[in-house]
Design a protein around this nucleic acid. Structure first.
Length: 168
DNA sequence: GCCAACGTTGGC
DNA sequence: GCCAACGTTGGC
């Protein structure tokens, strides 16, 4: 099946792109997603090998796309933090035998040569239809069209051959 | 820190 | 099923 493309948001103060780079195997489970639409994307559409633009939100002047990550788990699986009363992501209403919240693993894939700010994304005419630039768009996991994905990577200074090496 | 936009909850 | 109230997101 063809690779799909995504954008994942994270607050750099909480868990930034560099934090992913420092993880064991540069891989981390993406816990804490508590939005049904985002969950459904992970559950129904994400596949191992899909590429995601890593986006820093709530980051002042540094808001924007910083690099790429790749889906590293075969599929979505239960997010353990929903059953942990000490976790801020605890969900008392999620049944243990039918977990409400899922997650996938992401692996660090490539760092952009330069930050692509939200401002630049908004100013690029070819990205007009991209979800992340739309007003009030809060989804933390968004599907991205291939053309948009490539355009953002290019703005980040990635070369065509570097993208090819990642299977794009 | 402000606040607009959005998603979820729960009373009815 | 409607919708007001509430909590959260995230740009600024």
């Amino acid at each position: 099946m063809a690779k799909k493309f995504w954008l994942i948001k994270s607050e750099p103060d909480v868990f930034g792109f560099n934090d992913l780079a420092k993880c064991e195997n540069q891989t981390e489970h993406w816990d804490g997603i508590r939005n049904y639409q985002a969950r459904n994307f992970m559950r129904d559409e994400m596949q191992k090998g899909d590429l995601a633009i890593f986006y820093h939100s709530n980051a002042g002047p540094e808001v924007g796309a910083v690099g790429l990550a790749v889906v590293a788990s075969e599929k979505a699986y239960p997010d353990h933090t929903q059953f942990d009363p000490k976790s801020k992501y605890f969900d008392a209403k999620s049944p243990e035998d039918n977990p409400r919240w899922l997650m996938v693993d992401f692996k660090w894939a490539a760092e952009f040569k330069r930050l692509v700010t939200l401002k630049e994304l908004k100013e690029a005419p070819e990205l007009e239809e991209m979800l992340v630039v739309k007003r009030g768009q809060r989804l933390s996991i968004q599907p991205v069209e291939k053309a948009h994905f490539k355009a953002v990577c290019k703005m980040g200074g990635m070369l065509v051959k570097e993208l090819k090496a990642l299977g794009v």
